[in-house]
Amino acid sequence: MADLADVSILVLGAGGLGCEILKNLAMQGIPDIHVVDMDTIELTNLNRQFLFRESDIGQSKALVAARFINEKNIMGLGGRPVVVTAHFQDLTLLDRKFIERFTLIVSGLDSIEARRFMNMQLVRITFESRFEKCIPFIDGGSEGLKGHCKTIIPGFSACYECSLDTLPAKIESYPLCTVSNNPRLPEHVIEFLMSVQWAQQHPDRDFDFDSKEDLQWLMDEAHARARQFNIDTSKLTPQFVLGVIKNIVPSVASTNAIIAAQCCTEVSKLLYNEYDIGEAPNFLVYNGDDGCFAYSFVHERVSTCLVCRESIQ
């Protein structure tokens, strides 16, 4: 790896994992850190995203996170101060030249598509440079008390695409016959309203998740329909309904701390030449639901992977 004082790292996402990753990298003394995130701060972020306060609600996560760390005046490697640069934008619009300047990329995103985009860019960089340039990509993910950390050495070890089949299957949707004719659960009621009744009543526009009126319509109709089918309405609170329609996953500070730290340990091992490509486990899963369980293993490259299969080159 390059001289430690010249290291620069790009962090994808300034959410629950992102805040932890940024803090760790700063404490590890990484002098040049960039963060990209297009989200703004919301109230429900504050149970874990410790770089933000209530007065920051509505502002850019990337900008506020960078400001918070920069104000700490942390001294980094090589006597250079730690500086975080914010990019308040969609990361899939970052150009190749920009990505190429980083030593490493660490991701704390919740979007699979954004990770696939970055993975593809990085594999191409390795191939097009004929293996001269290789930017390791470390990917963290968390949900509730569970999480994972993947270390990808593009072109050398399993890429993000190679491991996509390890993702949990999408939540099954309910059969249309059940939701329209035989609803039994509050979830069935909501599914019917969102997939059938909204379009019938509002053929001209989509449901707006941020509109108070639309949410009120949903609450009112949900209660009416639940009563019609004698379904218990006590579960139909705004929190529950929003959880179902937005597919909100639980998230806590502790899991984010664990996963982000594992990602940053991988950063240290890569920077200090303590990482054994091909030998080191590149996939760690964590589960704190029952005891404290972590398991790591070597995920092999998939020879038919459409992204990192070399014959494409």
Binding site: A253, S254, A261
Partner: peptide, 17 residues
């Protein structure tokens, strides 16, 4: 400095427990 994440990881585990 490189070891800071270990401290952070352990703190996550202890807080979760």
């Amino acid at each position: 400095l490189r070891y800071y994440p270990t401290c952070s990881l352990l703190a996550g585990i202890v807080a979760q427990e």
